[in-house]
């Protein structure tokens, strides 16, 4: 199981990295963008494997990856946007959108409502995660950066 998670970490990292390049992230930050996405995905996946609720795991994953983006932003003196916009992608409910439409077209209304709800829940969870993480005082992060320099 650890092996699978490590493998998925690598894949999430590469996929996020590819998207970061697509959004023209600065070359020096490519790896960190990828790392943000990889960490976000691994947190999400491990919590799901532990049987956590979809929404809760997404909240925690979004929270951690946003804090990570903010830490990178302080350490590397780039806007948070650089890491956050790339890193959030593995959590975006692309699969949810697809299955919602698929079941709607197929006329399976039970699954349609399940998947539709999941998609909205995931989106809501991302909102909560990001907002919680943005709520941390900037001073804490600056303190972290100072400590790093010493």
């Amino acid at each position: 199981m650890v092996g699978t998670i490590l493998l998925h970490f690598g894949i999430a990292l590469i996929a996020t990295l590819a998207f970061a390049i697509l959004f023209q992230a600065p070359k020096s930050e490519w790896m960190l963008c990828g790392l943000t996405g990889g960490v976000g995905w691994v947190v999400y996946e491990s919590l799901q494997l532990q049987g956590w609720h979809l929404m809760l795991s997404t909240i925690v994953a979004a929270l951690i990856l946003t804090i990570l983006s903010r830490i990178f932003a302080v350490l590397r003196k780039h806007p948070v946007t650089v890491y956050l916009l790339s890193g959030i992608f593995p959590l975006v409910p692309g699969a949810g959108i697809y299955y919602t439409v698929f079941y709607m077209i197929s006329g399976n209304m039970d699954m349609f409502s399940v998947k539709g709800r999941e998609t909205i829940e995931t989106a809501g969870a991302i909102v909560i995660g990001i907002i919680l993480a943005m709520g941390l005082p900037q001073v804490w992060l600056n303190y972290l950066a100072k400590k790093e320099k010493k």
Partner: peptide, 10 residues
């Protein structure tokens, strides 16, 4: 979106 430009403008 162009993250490099945002970063440089910043």
């Amino acid at each position: 979106v162009n993250l490099l430009k945002i970063s440089k403008l910043n």
